[in-house]
Design a protein around this nucleic acid. Structure first.
Length: 456
RNA sequence: GUGGUUGUAGCUCAGUUGGUUAGAGCGCUGGAUUGUGGUUCCAGAGGUCGCCGGUUCAAAUCCGGUCAUCCACCCCA
């Protein structure tokens, strides 16, 4: 058969894995620095845990796992004969692949609420699956890097998460803009425009601003049945960049004022530290997910930064505060949480485009032994063990093959040094130590070679 | 789920209005060079032209279907 992999999935070669790990390691280090603890959850969850959490669209994008055994025997006859797939699913599938890390986290918190300290600060770096049609930067299997704190509504966490964004991207060498807004401010806008009942329609329209422009938002708003007067008001408010200027606008909106208050507090905290990237209030930031209730975050590449002008990439991270995420699993108190996510796959693509990965990658193979005959090969195998014991990443070509063949292999592995051993080396008690980059080589005693490689 | 794009050697791609044995570059193998890779030169291997069907004397080429791919939309990271 012809080998292949499922649509929307990818293999990663050694070079890619090393670069991906560089991103994951950097993110993980920062998470730990800020006091977050790792958890992992199963790739599969009970389907009931997942369904209904991501809206109707989300349910369609859930991967369902077929039950084992003679699953058709227990299938819903009615749905089966009606060819009604949606109705049939519950009777033939009880598990699904996780769609994100937030819902499994909520489930985890509820299940282990008596064993974990609150506020509970956790990070999680695992793959998720979506049956979306793949396209640029979108896959059916991809990693999410989530960091959340649940069990406190303190606004220092919003500030902390913005700092985490700032630090991670500064370590990765990528200039970004962290945009902040608050769902309560958006609610205040809806109230101020007199369209409070159409709050959802308004946020969904605003969310598309980047893509469809201001006129597009106008059309979208009126297309959703919002009067032209209200549309004008909303569009006018989208031009506001000064957070405090909203206070007078929101004089009649308690919620709106609360949002301004919260965001001001977060900005105050942030002003106390040094930030390397721009963190700014952006009233046009909406985020479609409707479980957010407070501050919301989104990170984009800073295209005004030198060298990054040409980058065309949507958001590379986002998140926000959600109240009552755990309530669907029956935990009503301590349910307030706030968290953000890093879009590792997109960050990878941007870093690749900007050549931001360190040149040496992670340290891989440092030394390859090349032997010319059986006696030298056996001698080299002994030295190989000593090299590894000394902390040097080393390898011996599996047999004393033609020198050209072994050298080609050394070249393909991009090993910086090779140690050649043949009759004359055995007689002299030395090795021919060759620098593959420069082509220089010298006869050295074994301890001298170890010394040279140890400090690298 | 909707619309479109492209499927030819391991990879990237040529292939004219349908016409003999389907090509190139890179990579791979061997040799020039029996103790030296990355440069150069020579030779060689490697293809059911995505798959199924149709039109035709004749199909990589035209038509239909199907699968895969990429792109856009919906939604999202």
């Amino acid at each position: 058969m012809k080998p292949g992999i499922p649509k929307g999935t990818r293999d990663f070669g050694p070079a890619e894995v090393l670069k991906r790990n560089y991103i994951f390691d950097t993110i993980r280090e920062v998470f730990i620095r800020y006091g977050y603890q790792p958890i992992e959850t199963p790739a599969m969850e009970d389907l009931a845990t997942l369904t209904g959490k991501y809206g109707e669209e989300g349910d369609k994008l859930l991967f369902k796992v077929l039950n084992n055994g003679d699953f058709l025997r227990k299938a819903d006859e009615e749905a089966l004969s009606a060819r009604d797939s949606t109705a049939l699913v519950p009777s033939i599938s009880k598990r699904g692949l996780r769609y994100d890390l937030t819902v499994p986290f909520a489930r985890f918190v509820v299940m282990h609420q008596n064993d974990i300290p609150f506020p509970f600060k956790r990070y999680q770096i695992q793959p998720v699956w979506r049956a979306d049609r793949p396209q640029k930067g979108r896959y059916q299997e991809f990693y999410q890097c989530d960091v959340d704190v649940v069990g406190s509504d303190a606004l220092i966490y919003e500030a902390e998460l913005a700092q985490i964004y700032d630090e991670v991207f500064s370590r990765l060498g990528l200039k970004v803009v962290v945009k902040l807004n608050n769902r309560k401010i958006l609610a205040g806008m809806a109230e101020a425009a007199g369209i409070a009942p159409q709050f959802m329609d308004m946020t969904m329209a605003i969310d598309k601003l980047d893509k469809i422009g201001l006129d597009g938002v106008r059309n979208e708003l009126s297309g959703r049945g919002i009067g032209s007067e209200a549309v004008d008001k909303v569009v006018e408010m989208l031009g506001i960049t000064d957070l405090q200027a909203l206070r007078s606008l929101f004089a009649q909106s308690e919620t709106g004022l609360k949002g301004v208050e919260e965001l001001s507090t977060v900005m105050d905290y942030l002003a106390m530290g040094e930030l390397k990237n721009e963190v700014r209030f952006d009233i046009t930031l909406a985020r479609g997910l409707n479980y957010y209730t407070g501050c919301i975050f989104e990170v984009g590449v800073d295209t005004s930064s030198p060298g990054q002008e040409a980058i065309k990439m949507g958001s590379i991270g986002g998140g926000g505060r959600y109240d009552g995420l755990t309530s669907v699993f029956g935990m009503t108190d301590r349910g307030s949480g706030v968290g953000v996510s890093f879009g590792a796959e997109r960050i990878y693509d941007v870093m690749e485009e900007l050549s931001l990965f360190p040149a040496d990658g992670a340290r891989t193979l440092q030394l390859l032994f090349i032997a010319f005959d059986e006696a030298a090969h056996r001698h080299a195998f002994r030295l190989l063990g000593q090299a590894r014991a000394a902390g040097i990443n080393a390898e011996l070509y599996p047999e004393p093959a033609k020198l050209k063949k072994q050298m080609k292999y050394a070249n393909a592995r991009e090993v910086p040094f090779v140690a050649l051993i043949g009759e004359s080396e055995l007689a002299a008690g030395t090795l021919t130590f060759k620098n593959m980059a420069t082509g220089e080589q010298q006869n050295l005693a074994w301890p001298a070679i170890i010394e040279q490689l140890k400090d690298r």
